[in-house]
Simulated scan of single mutants.
Amino acid sequence: YKALFGLRALLEPKNIVICINGCRLDFVCSSMGQQMSQGKVGYIIEIGKRATNRARTFDRCDDESKLTTVNKQMDYIRQWSESLKG
């Protein structure tokens, strides 16, 4: 999962986007998930809600409008995490 972020950072300046779930704005792989599944499984998240919708990191993203940059994805993950602290 971390390697995917590095690869994306190299590809983004060339306007290349990988069309997989791991590149979605609303996809997160927890630290425990990275250890247990080697980053192959994560969650589709929604602000204010706990993560329950599992998704495979490297499966094709069905909604291309959800694909985004590493920075925007990281910002969304931080916003989601903060929204759970209530």
Results as ranks from 00 to 15, higher is better:
Met74Phe: 14
Glu82Asp: 15
Gln79Arg: 14
Gly39Asp: 05
Leu67Thr: 03
Cys61Gly: 05
Asn21Leu: 06
Met36Tyr: 12
Ser83Trp: 10
Thr68Ala: 05
Gly48Val: 11
Gly22Asp: 00
Lys40Glu: 12
Arg78Lys: 15
Phe5Lys: 09
Pro13Val: 12
Val17Tyr: 05
Ser31Ile: 13
Asn53Tyr: 05
Lys66Ala: 08
Cys23Arg: 01
Leu10Thr: 06
Ser37Ala: 10
Asn53Arg: 13
Ile16Gln: 06
Ile47Gln: 12
Tyr76Ser: 10
Gly86Ile: 15
Cys29Ala: 12
Gln38Asn: 14
Ala9Thr: 06
Gln34Ala: 10
Ser30Ala: 08
Tyr1Ile: 01
Asn15His: 11
Gln79Cys: 09
Leu4Gln: 04
Leu4Arg: 02
Ala9Asp: 03
Arg56Asp: 06
Leu67Gly: 12
Thr69Ala: 11
Arg50Gly: 05
Arg50Leu: 10
Arg54Ile: 09
Tyr76Phe: 15
Gln38Lys: 07
Val28Glu: 04
Ser81Phe: 12
Gln79Phe: 07
Asp75Leu: 14
Gly48Asn: 02
Gly39Gln: 03
Ile16Val: 15
Asp75Glu: 15
Asp63Val: 10
Glu82Arg: 09
Leu10Asp: 01
Thr68Gly: 04
Ile20Asn: 06
Gln38Ile: 09
Arg54His: 09
Met36Thr: 13
Leu7Tyr: 03
Tyr43Glu: 03
Arg54Lys: 15
Leu11Phe: 11
Arg78Asp: 03
Leu10Glu: 02
Glu82Trp: 08
Asn15Pro: 02
Cys61Ile: 01
Phe58His: 01
Phe58Trp: 11
Gly6Asn: 07
Ser31Cys: 09
Gly86Trp: 08
Asp75Cys: 13
Thr69Asn: 10
Asn53Ser: 13
Asn21His: 05
Asp62Lys: 15
Phe27Cys: 04
Phe27Lys: 00
Glu64Ile: 15
Leu84Val: 15
Thr68Glu: 08
Thr68Leu: 09
Arg78Met: 11
Leu11Gly: 00
Leu10Asn: 01
Leu11His: 08
Ile77Trp: 02
Ile18His: 07
Lys40Phe: 13
Leu84Tyr: 01
Tyr1Met: 12
Asn71Ser: 15
Met36Gln: 11
Asn53Gln: 09
Asn53Val: 06
Met32Gly: 07
Lys49Arg: 13
Arg8Trp: 10
Ile20Pro: 05
Gly22Val: 01
